[in-house]
């Protein structure tokens, strides 16, 4: 019994490092962390622009009049939960459990789609309330920042979906594991950006800061 346990642990450990078990995988993981550094600079610029321009509402609606916090809260719930399911997926990958990995990735994708659906509803509502892309510098900066983030979520959904196809076909291999791992890194990053958007755009907007 005990020896069997050690054996399981040994395979566990082998799987644990599967995304960095080849040079190709190590390059991918490192390169992707580096890329996320660049993404930080990208979103930092967008936040700076938003903070510069969000007071310029011209004749259009202001943040206080516009934002519907319960709806945004729902979107936040979807996206934050999807990070958790992403982690559970990576956990399953490390255990070598393809079925569980696919299931958790599937839930992640669905939550991502739910987030996008809420965002589409939100944007359509705003458009009906006279808050289009070119209404005011505030609206431009809002749609640029939140839209860039939404674009990132949409790309992540497509990316993880294609990875699921590959995993279904070939299983968890030293080739596929780094791809799944960096997609999860990306997903967490997009999630963290949303935490900042929620705070800076929505909460501060509601409070009229």
């Amino acid at each position: 019994m005990e020896s069997q346990q050690t054996l399981v642990n040994a395979t566990d450990r082998m799987q644990l490092g599967i995304e960095t078990s080849t040079l190709e995988g190590r390059n991918k993981v490192l390169g992707f962390w580096v890329f996320l550094g660049g993404e930080c600079a990208l979103f930092a610029s967008l936040f700076a622009i938003y903070l510069t321009l969000h007071g310029q509402t011209l004749h259009g609606p202001t943040a206080k009049e516009l934002f519907n916090l319960p709806l945004i809260g729902l979107a936040t719930l979807f996206l934050l939960t999807s990070s958790l399911t992403g982690v559970l997926g990576i956990n399953a990958m490390h255990r070598g459990n393809r079925r569980s990995l696919l299931r958790w990735l599937g839930v992640t994708v669905l939550l991502g789609l739910a987030f996008l659906a809420v965002q589409v509803i939100e944007f359509i509502t705003y458009a009906h309330e006279g808050f289009g892309f070119s209404t005011s510098p505030f609206s431009c900066a809002f749609y640029a920042l939140v839209g860039f983030h939404g674009g990132h979520v949409a790309f992540g959904v497509m990316w993880i979906s294609t990875l699921m196809l590959q995993l279904k076909k070939e299983g968890i291999t030293a080739r596929k594991a780094p791809k799944v791992f960096i997609a999860s890194l990306y997903w967490h990053f997009v999630d963290v950006v949303w935490v900042f958007i929620f705070t800076v755009v929505y909460l501060m907007g509601i409070m009229g800061v």
Binding site: L53, F133, A144
Partner: peptide
């Protein structure tokens, strides 16, 4: 990107007349 929006899609990021900067 913002420059492109300003020139091609009618936004006002950099246009002072419309409140941009």
């Amino acid at each position: 990107f913002l420059y492109m929006f300003d020139r091609l899609f009618g936004s006002h990021f950099f246009d002072a007349a419309m409140g941009g900067n």
